[in-house]
């Protein structure tokens, strides 16, 4: 028996010199397949689990042309886009299904306050919003962390604020007042400046890039004290003055009908002709 036991493997191994036994080959092949499947399951299981754990919140509200959207998020991305329908569409993807979200519609304003709705709670996680609003809406969005994006808005005000980290992207904006502020991250504005409008961009560290038409008209105060990197591009003229050894640029472009204030404590400021 012992001999047989000892013999069998030898027989199996040496049935055909230079090649493994077909049975062993089959076992080895299956082992590889199993290992491959196991690794796939191992790597993708958390993602699959996460996907299955996410909750989607969706709701539509009838709205006037100049409705106000006021959103305060804790963490996550917010995308706001203007459209031609007289309604607001809110879609939110909640990383933690237990997170609370309770939008309110009060006298022409849609309020969403994730901070208040989840105050004192642990593990709220990211809440990512995709919101569509009428083009003439007033948009006032704020988050503690995460990217903000606003597109196709021509209302009275666009305000985007990130308390800590995240990029702000404002494209195709024609609002009368724009206020964008973040901590660490870039700010990009692509839009028009209305006569009599007020435009303010503030960052602690990042790049502030403005893409505006050449027929814009504004009074400028741009300050980048740490880098002194202020590039006016096509908008540089004799009415612009360098102050504080190049830390600030103050002046007028066109007839100066709007005000533009840019402050970047530890980053750069650039103008791009649209």
């Amino acid at each position: 028996m012992i001999r047989n036991l000892k013999y069998e493997p030898r027989v199996l191994m040496h049935t055909k010199p230079g090649k493994a036994h077909p049975l062993i080959q089959l076992v080895l092949t299956r082992k590889t397949t199993i290992l491959l499947w196991l690794s796939v399951v191992f790597f993708f299981a958390p993602i699959l689990n996460e996907v299955s754990a996410q909750r989607r919140f969706s709701r539509n509200y009838p709205a006037t042309r100049n409705v106000r959207l006021q959103l305060l998020n804790r963490s996550g991305t917010v995308e706001v886009e203007g459209w031609d329908r007289p309604e607001i569409s809110i879609s939110a993807y909640l990383e933690n299904p237990a997170a609370n979200i309770a939008p309110q519609s009060l006298s022409g304003t849609i309020y969403i306050d994730l901070v208040k709705d989840n105050q004192g709670r642990n593990g709220v996680g990211n809440v990512n919003f995709v919101i569509k609003v009428p083009r003439l809406s007033i948009v006032d969005i704020e988050t503690r962390m995460g990217n903000l994006s606003v597109t196709n808005i021509n209302g009275g005000l666009v305000r985007a604020m990130i308390s800590t980290e995240g990029d702000i992207t404002l494209t195709n904006i024609g609002a009368g007042a724009v206020d964008a502020q973040n901590g660490i991250g870039d700010i990009f504005f692509d839009g028009e400046m209305r006569s009599g409008g007020h435009y303010r961009f503030t960052s602690i560290r990042g790049n502030i890039n403005l893409r505006i038409p050449f027929n814009s008209s504004f009074r400028l105060v741009a300050t980048a004290p740490s880098t002194r990197n202020i590039s006016l591009g096509s908008f540089g003229n004799s009415n612009m003055n360098l102050l504080g050894n190049g830390r600030s640029v103050v002046g007028r472009f066109g007839n100066g009908s709007s005000t533009l204030t840019i402050t970047n404590h530890r980053g750069s400021i650039s103008f791009i002709r649209r």
Binding site: N122, M145, S163, T164, E165, G183, I184, R205, H265, R266
Partner: peptide, 15 residues
């Protein structure tokens, strides 16, 4: 959470 705490500290440090 840790992510939030780190982001806060980084920004405070920058300021």
């Amino acid at each position: 959470d840790n992510k939030m705490r780190d982001a806060f500290d980084r920004n405070l440090n920058e300021i």
